[in-house]
């Protein structure tokens, strides 16, 4: 990014560098502003304005229907802090992250190390198969998974019954004891391939010559892995864990289509709760939804920052010991 903000050295060759007035300088670059216009306008409308006005909406008591939307200050935030379902939803979201992110990052690293072996036949085919769920439409998968895990005739229960693992069909999505774990399993399946490709990309950055040097020094397969590959992957661990965690926070599509937050709020993630407050209730509460959105946004940023700092700290401790 530094290369882009740096002053282009040859820029003066296209336009003679002279001391000019502000207006003349802007006029000389008029096409630059024209080129930027679509991005500035669209970005302003759909990214900047929503962030700013979201903050304002969160201070209103607003059902989205009438023009009546009284300013109520921080009442929405006060309500959110005392709202057990909001806390419950944060807990569900955090639990999903705490369980699936380390598993996904570790397991996909394992598979990536196997697939990265240039002598492994069919490696490309395996990568493709594992990546395919990533490109599928989450909302479609969520609906279909409802059938795959159905207690009456779904293939998963058929298999479990046929193998004698269970005597009675398991109501994976209808039972609060299993629903969240099922959602996590499907989420892992759906997005495993993307973390795998992250790791494969990271492995590609290690030059072949490094391995050759290790081999000349007499390092076998395990030694090369332990002393060459893993240390060189360490800096990528932070970014890959962070990307995976941030993606996991946006688990909305899958949860809404698989369980809609139920049963008994067992899979209620924060995004689904916000959606229900803002759009799905009998009386939509846009102001309250906006406040929850702001809180969740802050929560996301803080969480990402803590994770980044924590991982960096852990790395420093490990490398200095």
């Amino acid at each position: 990014m530094s290369t882009m903000t740096r002053k282009a050295p040859a820029g003066g060759r296209l336009v003679p560098a002279r001391r000019r007035g502000l207006a003349a300088r802007i006029w000389a670059e008029r096409w630059s502003y024209v080129f930027l216009l679509p991005t500035v306008v669209l970005f302003g409308m759909y990214t900047i304005w929503p962030i700013v006005s979201g903050l304002y909406y969160s201070l209103l008591d607003w059902n989205g229907l009438g023009a009546e939307r009284p300013f109520i200050g921080l009442a929405n935030y006060r309500e959110a802090f005392g709202d057990p379902l909001f806390w419950k939803s944060l807990g569900v979201t955090l639990l999903i992250i705490a369980v699936t992110v380390p598993l996904r990052v570790a397991l996909s690293l394992l598979v990536a190390l196997v697939l990265n072996n240039p002598r492994l036949p069919l490696a490309k085919l395996f990568r493709t198969a594992l990546f395919v769920p990533v490109v599928t439409t989450t909302a479609i998968i969520g609906v279909v998974m409802g059938f795959i895990f159905d207690p009456a005739g779904g293939p998963v229960n058929q298999l479990l019954l046929d193998l004698g693992i269970v005597d009675q069909p398991v109501d994976f999505l209808g039972d609060p004891a299993t629903s969240l774990w099922t959602v996590m399993g499907v989420h892992m399946w759906k997005w495993f391939g993307i973390t795998l490709v992250y790791w494969l990309a990271a492995l590609q950055t290690i030059p072949v010559t490094v391995y050759e040097a290790a081999r000349t020094d007499g390092a076998g397969g395990w030694a090369a892995l332990r002393y060459v590959t893993l240390p060189m992957l360490k800096p990528f661990l932070i970014i890959i864990a962070l990307l995976t965690a941030i993606e996991t926070m946006q688990i909305f599509d899958l949860v809404l289509t698989m369980t809609n937050g139920g049963p008994f709020f067992s899979t209620l993630t924060t995004e689904v709760y916000i959606y229900q407050q803002a759009f799905a209730g009998t009386t939509p509460r846009l102001g309250y939804g906006a406040a929850l959105g702001v809180l969740f946004g802050v929560f996301t940023l803080v969480f990402a920052a803590i994770q980044a700092v924590g991982l960096r700290y852990a790395n420093r401790v490990r490398s200095s010991s």
């Binding site: 929503p50 946006q250 803002a278």
Partner: peptide, 10 residues
């Protein structure tokens, strides 16, 4: 790094 999905109301 701004969370995208939450801008939906505005």
């Amino acid at each position: 790094f701004a969370p995208g999905g939450l801008t939906i109301i505005p």
